[in-house]
Design a binder for these strands. Structure first.
Lengths: 343, 343
DNA sequence: AATAATAATACAAGCGTTTGTATTATTATA
DNA sequence: TATAATAATACAAACGCTTGTATTATTATT
């Protein structure tokens, strides 16, 4: 029984009350140029007629959509969802909505999505570039056209005009590995993610420099850089890694929670005792680590806060006067090591 | 170095080529009314000038935004994210974008979000009503105004004019519980979710009717309806439940994956052997069950497909002629029991 | 009561497109 | 070559709102 009905618009209210459209518009805005009694009449009539403002017309007229475009590499990574939650919360409190898209780890899709954002649907963009994104010209292009932008996670320093939100990946992983070393572990395996991602490079750097500080030689055999772009393949990669090891590690430091869980799972299958024989540390701390038996020690990354901060920076940009040049802001958030049963 | 630059519009191209705006517009559409040579000139100039169409203006003019509004009760439930992925994939392939919002399990927020959708930003809506949603007048209101709508998960049959996508919750849980019974289990615990949700009511019904069929009396002590709206509290509720049991169950059927994992975790802590002493079945099957040791047997719900189907139905509605009445469609998707180590 | 000041409202252009109709240019027909 | 048919383009209204300026109504001032 659904018929499309013609929507009530300002004109309808104006006609009914025999006043001008402009007055109706201003009345609904509670503009003092319209006298109280008229305002009340307008509100009452608008209510009665079921008036609902047309956001598109407003946007065209005002040049603002109050929508923030968010571009993440994948949906099935809780980290990104958590960041989105943070963005959403801050944005909502500041009268913005968010439009989330996934680049599905593809440079091509990243560009396509940005183009669709550029068509005027969003007032600004928050994104985490994919690992495939070597050339950031498309990003610089957008910022130089005046599109407000904030980058998080897989930061690209070369992008000028965009703000950056990050954690200190090097220090975070250094601390985690140092923690393991201080517990007496010497054969510490490293499981990282896609090599092209700065975050994973940095975490590897932190790992190496911790080993270095304590004069532990780097054993390449104990190092794995996972290349899986999808949950289902990570599983196998990690299984294979452990199967082919000739040295048994006494600790594993992994660059995501999921790698940590998969590592524990594999170790448990081979009857290793955690943490007695092998200690494990994950990275992220998005809830999963607490469910597993044993619970997983993690580098706690403030994902939600990361989103909030990104939204805050973007909205700040949106409120800057248009003719002023934007000063790049870089925010580093704190991480901490949350100890649980796996260490 | 970011300055807002004035965007190139059709008028600029028209002026440069000394032709009319209408011709430029049609040329870019490859409308046969403009001759090839002109089209080429226009494309070339548009490219040179860096023209980017204004989506908002297009939408105002066409009355379509090509955006689908998606409203889910929470972000931190993988099921909803998976549905969103499905919607996104189908929508994207049909030239639609999706705008996801969360009602955060609140009827009030649900209404607010729908109002903002109603402002003309979206062409149609896909939603899963919250458990707080007793009165569906706001939904019927929207459909009767002609807003295309598809409901999934927590279906409300009273909503007319909206299509429904669902699974057979009663049968799915009946099958799962029957499976346990056939394995010789007699003291089967039930862990459900928020009682007000139809899906959880139905799963409870399935549980009871399986017991009934095999003449197993319902032991209320073995039944828990979790009320947690957030991950962090589910943990405690389930722990408490098991702590206070006087009967030890020999199986547990839970209404989400997470409940299943938490149940296993709690059981493992009390040194119970899974599946020897207690078998566990979860509901959903969104990847987590495979990571845990032991892996979790699950009712596999086709979440991604659910999203795809919802998007398909919505887009079908969007393409219906406006003056025709919409015939309500209800789609039931198949589930299956995926056996793993926990049973 | 006439004029100035101000309050309230109306008019109209503009936001960047689309699209139906009118107009002009080109080709075909006799 | 004049006219009809058609191709190509231009004009202008429309989408629903905002907002600067002009106009009218009301109140204050002398």
């Amino acid at each position: 029984m659904v018929f499309k009905k013609r929507r009530v618009k300002l004109e309808d209210i104006a006609r009914k009350l025999n006043i001008s459209i402009a007055t109706v518009s201003r009345a609904l805005d509670k503009n003092p140029r319209v006298k109280k009694s008229t305002q009340e009449k307008v509100f009452k009539t608008a209510e009665e007629m079921g008036y609902m403002p047309n956001q598109i017309a407003k946007s065209l007229s005002s040049g603002k959509t109050n929508i923030i475009g968010v571009l993440i590499p994948r949906y099935d990574e809780p980290f990104f969802i958590e960041v989105c939650r943070g963005i959403d919360q801050y944005a909502r409190n500041h009268n913005y909505k968010i439009l989330i898209s996934s680049s599905r780890n593809s440079y091509q899709f990243e560009k396509e999505n940005l183009i669709s954002f550029e068509r005027g649907l969003v007032d600004g963009i928050i994104l985490s570039p994919t690992h495939e994104t070597e050339n950031v010209a498309h990003l610089n292009d957008l910022t130089s056209k005046g599109m407000p932008m904030v980058l998080f996670d897989n930061i690209r320093e070369e992008v000028s005009g965009a703000d950056h939100v990050m954690i200190d990946d090097i220090k975070s992983s250094f601390d985690a590995v140092e923690f393991l070393i201080k517990k007496g572990r010497k054969k510490i395996a490293f499981i990282g993610g896609i090599k092209q991602k700065k975050v994973f490079q940095d975490r590897f750097t932190g790992y190496k420099s911790a080993l270095n500080k304590y004069k532990i030689p780097l054993n390449e055999e104990l190092v794995l850089h996972c290349n899986s772009l999808d949950r289902e393949f990570e599983d196998r990669e990690i299984l294979d890694f452990f199967k082919h090891l000739t040295t048994t590690p006494d600790a594993v430091f992994t660059c995501t929670d999921n790698y940590g869980l998969l590592a524990m799972k594999t170790l448990l299958k081979t009857e290793k005792k955690i943490p007695e024989e092998v200690a494990v540390i994950g990275f992220g701390d998005l809830g999963l680590g607490e469910v597993f038996v044993p619970t997983l020690t993690c580098v706690s990354q403030p994902s939600f806060e990361m989103g909030q901060k990104a939204a805050e920076l973007l909205i700040k940009q949106l409120n800057e006067p248009e003719d002023i040049l934007h000063k790049k802001t870089v925010v580093k958030l704190e991480t901490k090591l949350t100890q649980r049963e796996s260490t």
